[in-house]
Simulated assay, not measured.
Amino acid sequence: MDRIDFDVVAFDLDGTLADTAPDLAASLNHALGSVGRRGVPPESVRNLVGHGAKALLRRGLAVTGEASEGLVEEAYPAFMDYYGANICAGTRIFPGVEQALDDLVARGVTVAICTNKPESLTHLLIEALGWTGRFAAIVGGDTLAVRKPDPTPLFETIMRAGGGKAAFVGDSIIDADTAKAAQLPFVAVSFGFSDRPVAQLGAHAVIDHYAELAGALARL
């Protein structure tokens, strides 16, 4: 068994641990409909996720017309209510995730989540996935006054997880920029919600399946 020289490995959530795009797309289209807009193709939502719910709404509105802050604020409650009620209707964890997490814990690594999803919705999804208690720390997009790519939420996640040498696993330029700002090793998953080719993220390692994660971390 390869030695993993990290005390904490933090993970993004949407597009990294779980494919949440089906439920985000349904919620976005519900919110767009609430302000008289047409929906967007569900597959296109994969390239819009990463900055949080309001940014997703802003980008969805921009695709369909005007994207004023007034419209974002008007559509936001409809998005949040619908998503909260349907948070795990179509969401699925990526293949190999649970085995990879169990493997890290068995090696003495603490696992945690640092996401831009609102903290309340993050906990709701974690519970729906049957992951309550699996992560030592969970920091959401509204846990602190700042969110990724500011490195502060990642630092907070690591501290809450016990501190020590850490790495970050994510899928987007937001995650890449967060790790870079924190000066931490970054592992990118190739199957997430990135708006650009994974090779352009500047990751220290790229994995195509979670079976590759332990090996990638051991080599960092």
Results as ranks from 00 to 15, higher is better:
V8H: 00
F191D: 02
L48S: 02
V206C: 09
G215S: 13
D81I: 12
Q183M: 14
R107M: 11
V9L: 00
T143G: 13
V109Y: 00
A181V: 02
R134M: 07
K180C: 10
R107P: 09
G108D: 09
A167R: 06
A161N: 00
V8G: 02
P153S: 02
D7F: 11
E69H: 10
L125Q: 04
G163W: 04
D177W: 10
I126V: 15
F94Y: 15
A166H: 04
A26Y: 08
S120P: 01
R196L: 11
D175A: 07
R134L: 08
A62N: 11
A10V: 06
L101S: 03
V189C: 00
E74H: 09
F155I: 01
A176Y: 10
A75T: 02
R147C: 14
A205N: 03
I174D: 01
L101Q: 03
T20F: 00
V139N: 06
R38P: 14
V72L: 06
I173N: 12
R37K: 15
R147S: 15
V198A: 07
P77L: 12
K148V: 09
I174G: 03
V105Y: 01
V169D: 01
T157I: 09
G84M: 04
I207T: 07
A176W: 08
I4K: 02
K165M: 07
A78Y: 07
D12M: 05
D19K: 05
P77C: 13
G33Y: 00
S172G: 10
P41H: 06
S44Q: 09
G130Y: 09
L104E: 04
R107I: 05
P197W: 05
E43H: 10
I158V: 15
L13F: 13
S194M: 07
R134N: 04
F168H: 13
D171T: 08
I126L: 14
T152S: 14
P22R: 05
G192C: 08
Y76P: 05
A106Y: 03
A145V: 12
L213M: 11
R107L: 14
L129T: 10
L124E: 15
E73I: 05
G133C: 08
S190I: 07
E74T: 14
E66V: 13
R107T: 07
L28M: 05
D150C: 10
H123S: 02
A218K: 11
L201S: 02
I113A: 05
F191W: 00
G33R: 11
H204Q: 14
S34V: 01
T115I: 11
D208H: 15
